[in-house]
Design a protein around this nucleic acid. Structure first.
Lengths: 207, 207
DNA sequence: TCACCTACCTAACACTTGTTAGGTGTCTGG
DNA sequence: CCAGACACCTAACAAGTGTTAGGTAGGTGA
């Protein structure tokens, strides 16, 4: 009975071992540079064995892409839910940025893999990832919309467009972020201030 | 003499024809998905012939990457230079964003190729592109620094970090921008307002 | 004990990749 | 008219790709 459990665990290790190795490699090297043989070696098995767990390379990619978005979505949702219902708008906005950046920069082979390779995968794989992606986008739009209804965000801000701006800026941090030069949370707070207040000295125009 | 000119022109068509075709394909499909045979076919020649003009595939990539950055740099520099010396800070900032976005979204197989494939190329190719990249970053930092000295940008704004935020947000537009839903210049002005003024309704905190 | 399932391995498949060697026709300056 | 440069082509190379068929060691339930 104990041993049968061990077998079941090993089964999970095998599968998730492949996914973990693949996510790590894909996040570092990109879609085209990572072969099944590299993934297999990193997972401690041989290339052909991958097909016991997955039907194709794109199958692995699809699963990693979905898990990547889901991890960010969950992290952001949890952080927002942890706030009291009447939390200041600034705190809600910060929670969103903190969740997204921490998931992306600190715990996230899958998340960073998603950001890095989404633009490189075949169209079919990209399409398979769209529902999960759309769900996260809808969640963000809802959060922003609530802030706008509460009159915290100006009514003339185009929310879907701002959401694209926001995600673009956040995801780009992956290319240069160095955890030794400051935490992801500090970076998130800094970004939040920039987005909320702008960079202008006064509201008026300076020559 | 006329014909000798024709030959020289054809030589240029051959070389730049390959570069143009490669930039277009790379911008659309990514580094790993584009083979020399695809580039050759798009340029109207055979794969082996490419080696008459270039020493390797990475040679082509390197040239395209450099040209891509240079095109944005030139466009932004020209637009800023076209302003009068005492132009309002808002206009300078808008000119920067307009130049970057127009180069990226409207005229720019090379530019969009650069943004799309830079993260996917081999390290050696990436390193070769760094000097041109650094020059553009330094130019942007100078422009922003001038605005900060003029007290248009708050002194507590970390400029290099803001530049990273800005470029990240601008480059991400490549993934969703649709010229039929509005011009790149309008988008640039909208982004400029968001960055300058922020999204907050009041400077105070709302519950 | 025996049949069976799980989780792997080996070896090969057809195919694509970047790259090279050598050949071909056309145009050109002398 | 001719040597030669120019701009291509053909055909092949070794290496690497995703993928598959068939085999195997060891634990499992009856």
């Amino acid at each position: 009975m104990v041993l049968s459990k061990t077998v079941a665990e090993n089964a999970e290790v095998g599968r998730t071992g492949i996914l973990d190795a693949a996510a790590l490699l894909l996040g570092r090297q990109g879609y085209g540079a990572v072969s099944l043989r590299m993934i297999a070696e990193a997972a401690g098995i041989k290339a052909g064995s991958i097909y016991y767990h997955f039907a194709s390379k794109d199958d692995i990619i699809t699963e990693i892409l979905d898990a990547g978005i889901q991890a960010v979505h969950d992290e952001v949702r949890d952080r927002v839910a942890a706030l009291s219902a009447d939390a200041p708008a600034r705190d809600v906005f910060r929670a969103v940025l903190r969740g997204h950046l921490c998931a992306l920069l600190e715990h996230g082979a899958y998340t960073s893999a998603n950001v890095r390779i989404f633009g490189q995968v075949p169209p079919e794989v990209r399409d398979a990832n769209l529902p999960v992606r759309r769900a996260y986008e809808a969640f963000l739009d809802n959060q922003l919309s609530e802030l706008q209804v509460r009159d915290a965000i100006r009514s003339d801000v185009n929310l879907p467009r701002f959401r694209l701006l926001l995600i673009g800026a956040l995801n780009a941090t992956l290319e240069w972020f160095d955890p030794q030069k400051g935490s992801a949370e500090d970076l998130a707070d800094d970004y939040a201030d920039t987005f909320l207040n702008g960079i202008l000295s006064q509201s008026g125009d300076n020559t």
